[in-house]
């Protein structure tokens, strides 16, 4: 058996094929390792859920939905699904119904860096840059309130120190029933 002559150009072509196959193999492996970290299913509560009838939430109350990271705020303007995640760095604020805020009693306060929100969850003190985000609320056909945390409303209106902002600007963030 005699060695077949390989031209210089042909040899380089072979090299290119060889090295690109190796690169493809390693690259594919790395991509699949990265993809492995993002599972098809996660064991977390569903993002879309029902929280009971509107009558369960009398006007003027802020009710924590335990395990869902959400308050249902009931106002004269309507209902709001306030996501319990500080807009500063993501800690969970607490609702203090008896502490005084710019709108009278009731403020949200974050234990991490002391951000404060009024009862409409608008920031008025501390490092929080925006009001709390809101999950989309709707009325399900069976008459119960339905929360969809995948649809997040961001009322990016900064409240001036101690001065209320225009209420009409907040209108779209309430569910009227």
């Amino acid at each position: 058996m005699q060695d077949k002559e390989t031209s210089r150009r042909g040899f380089i072509g072979l090299l290119v094929i060889a090295y690109s196959s190796i690169a493809l193999y390693i690259g594919g492996a790395l991509v699949s390792f990265l993809r492995f970290l993002f599972p098809y299913a996660i064991y977390e509560p569903p993002q879309k859920f029902k929280v009971g009838k509107p009558e369960d939430y009398p006007v003027g109350t802020i009710t924590l939905i335990t395990g869902r990271g959400l308050w249902i705020g009931s106002y004269s303007e309507g209902f709001a699904g306030l996501i319990a995640k500080c807009t500063h760095l993501g800690c969970k604020p607490n609702w203090f119904p008896l502490k005084d805020g710019p709108l009278g009693q009731g403020i949200f306060e974050c234990p991490c860096h002391g951000s404060k929100y009024d009862k409409y969850a608008r920031n008025f003190a501390g490092p929080a840059p925006f009001p709390l985000r809101r999950a989309k609320l709707s009325l399900a056909p069976d008459g119960r309130l339905e929360v969809d945390k995948t649809e997040v409303l961001e009322p990016k209106v900064k409240m001036q120190d101690g001065v209320e902002i225009d209420e009409t600007k907040m209108e779209e963030f309430f569910l009227k029933v």
């Binding site: 990265l34 970290l37 993002f38 599972p39 996660i42 064991y43 977390e44 990271g69």
Partner: peptide
């Protein structure tokens, strides 16, 4: 929020067993 860097780090939308 199910594909970003924070999810890759924490394995969920919030910190838990994963």
């Amino acid at each position: 929020n199910l594909q970003d860097a924070a999810f890759g780090l924490v394995g969920g939308t919030e910190i838990g067993p994963a």
